[in-house]
């Protein structure tokens, strides 16, 4: 065995460097370099950003961004939307996973799972293009359906009051299936014996769910919340396809706003926003992770 131990300790690392080289190359060229660049660009004057010798302006872009009332509104609506979307998606997925996993549902569960997951693999552009028309005030099926069952019209993406809810529903359609399967994976490894014992001790099904199963779902709850936070803080495609930031800027979320500035050649400000959003994503995800971990101990 000494030979093996020697082998593992020393020598022959070069072959592993060689194996990892293409992956490392790609990570550096398309990951670390752009991230470094985005930070560099965020401290340069936009007009000179793409030149070989850009003018560095320190934190001026950050100051401009923070002083921009449109950005502050955008940031606020991004946070509001993220909060709403995370809670709705995670709770919906939790409930749906409980149902799919329930003893009540045996036949057809594969069908239900496929139906729920198909929107996840559907290209988001195609899905949102369909939703954009479902909400249409004259073509759309949503209002026609509401009229049919005698409910008032839904403003959809045309009204500033309902646009956020409208894109939230479309995004739930696209993303929820993913959160459901993570809950399902966790439910599959829950301790069945504990459940039975609690039922034998006379706990109602709801008590069992709340006190026995839910605590065991903590890992999936933490993972899903973090994923959802990251997902919805950077909401982008749905905006590009459905609202373009409107109506009245109600869905002008940070990613989209930064992209529009970039499109106008305001690279410095756009990248300052990107950096702010990145820090925000990292901090919030980290906090969610810590809260999840602390609850476990």
């Amino acid at each position: 065995m000494a030979r093996v131990a020697d082998y593992f300790r020393s020598g022959n690392v070069w072959v592993f460097y060689l194996f990892a080289l293409p992956f490392a190359g790609l990570t550096i060229v398309f990951g670390l370099w752009p991230i470094a660049l985005s930070f560099l660009v965020s401290i340069t004057k936009s007009a000179t950003a793409l030149r070989a010798n850009p003018d560095y302006v320190g934190l001026a872009n950050y100051a401009k961004v923070i002083g921009d009332p449109v950005f502050l509104t955008s940031l606020w609506s991004t946070l509001l939307y993220t909060g709403l979307a995370v809670v709705t998606n995670v709770l919906f997925a939790l409930g749906y996973a409980f149902l799919l996993n329930s003893v009540l549902v045996r036949r057809g569960s594969t069908f239900f799972k496929i139906a729920m997951f198909l929107p996840v693999v559907t290209p988001d552009v195609a899905g949102y293009a369909v939703w954009r028309w479902l909400y249409d005030q004259s073509f759309g099926a949503v209002n026609a359906f509401l009229a049919l069952v005698g409910l008032p019209d839904f403003g959809g993406i045309a009204s500033p009051n309902t646009a956020m809810v409208a894109i939230l529903v479309a995004e739930l359609w696209h993303h929820a299936g993913f959160y459901v399967i993570i809950f399902l994976a966790n439910l599959a490894i829950c301790d069945k014996a504990l459940e039975e014992a609690s039922a034998l001790d006379g706990a109602t099904p709801w008590q069992t769910k709340l006190h026995i199963i839910l605590p065991q779902l903590r890992p999936a709850l933490v993972i899903n919340s973090i994923y959802a936070i990251i997902q919805f803080l950077k909401t982008f495609t749905v905006i590009v396809v459905m609202t373009k930031g409107g109506p009245n800027g109600t869905t002008n979320f940070v990613s989209y706003y930064a992209y529009r500035l970039f499109d106008q050649g305001r690279y410095g400000e756009a990248m300052a926003m990107a950096t702010i959003l990145f820090v925000l994503v990292a901090v919030i995800a980290f906090l969610a992770y810590r809260i999840g971990e602390r609850g476990r101990a």
Partner: peptide
């Protein structure tokens, strides 16, 4: 380092990574 670098890249808001990727 490679693993951390990769994880950092994956955490970066994808849509905003694409913009500097344009420059690269």
């Amino acid at each position: 380092l490679l693993r951390s670098g990769f994880l950092l890249t994956m955490m970066y808001p994808y849509m905003l990574l694409v913009i500097p990727v344009y420059i690269v």
